[in-house]
Amino acid sequence: MPLINCNNIALSYESRTVVKDLSFDVHEGDYLCVVGENGSGKSTLIRALLGLKSLSHGSIVFSEGLSKNEIGYLPQQSGIQKDFPASVYEVVLSGTLNSSGFLPFYKKKNRLTAEENMEKLGITDLKNACYKELSGGQQQRVLLARALSATKKLLLLDEPTSGLDPIVSSDFYRIIEKLNRDDGITVIMVSHEIKTAIKYATHMLHLHRNHSFFGPKEHYLECNDCKKLLEGGSDNV
């Protein structure tokens, strides 16, 4: 049984239908890359998967092994305020809140999870640093550590590398790949850097209003849409 089953879904954004008749499955361990033009509904799809947005048609079914508080999410940077006073540790620790239920305070287990994930992403020495004073790449690592503190199974990333320089950005892709390969975390990533994204993905979802493509990467590379995108030469697809 797939981890996530999207059956014939339609999504609308400000009363305009952006995605129609879309069906796809995500299995455990998949690395799904979502691409498409601006306004094609990539972020809307992510929000729908997270349950933040209701579907106008169809259904999204999660497998029994995956409950809503086991999803790690890396939002677009713009959602976070630039001048918020928060230490790295506070931010990462807040990712573990979903597993602590109604308990008012963090348990030792939560602290250990947060520390493990900071270690994994190489930000342990930034523990007490102020989030807003970090570089863009460091901030993304912090948010990724927070997402990992919320999940061991599924990561949803919404354009995680926008605004990062190419070196930092390719570092970031390598971290994600490692999490997918070594820790078996399922990854769903929205990206506009199609050339880099396609290198690591196992499956591709190309959103287009009436004929979206979904399938393994190998099939996608042979289809015309993909060639058009890749030949377009720019990363801003």
Binding site: G72, Y73, G79, S94, L97, N98
Partner: peptide, 9 residues
């Protein structure tokens, strides 16, 4: 700090 992350999780 981050309402959409909180909602999402």
């Amino acid at each position: 700090f981050d309402e959409s992350f909180s909602r999402a999780t």
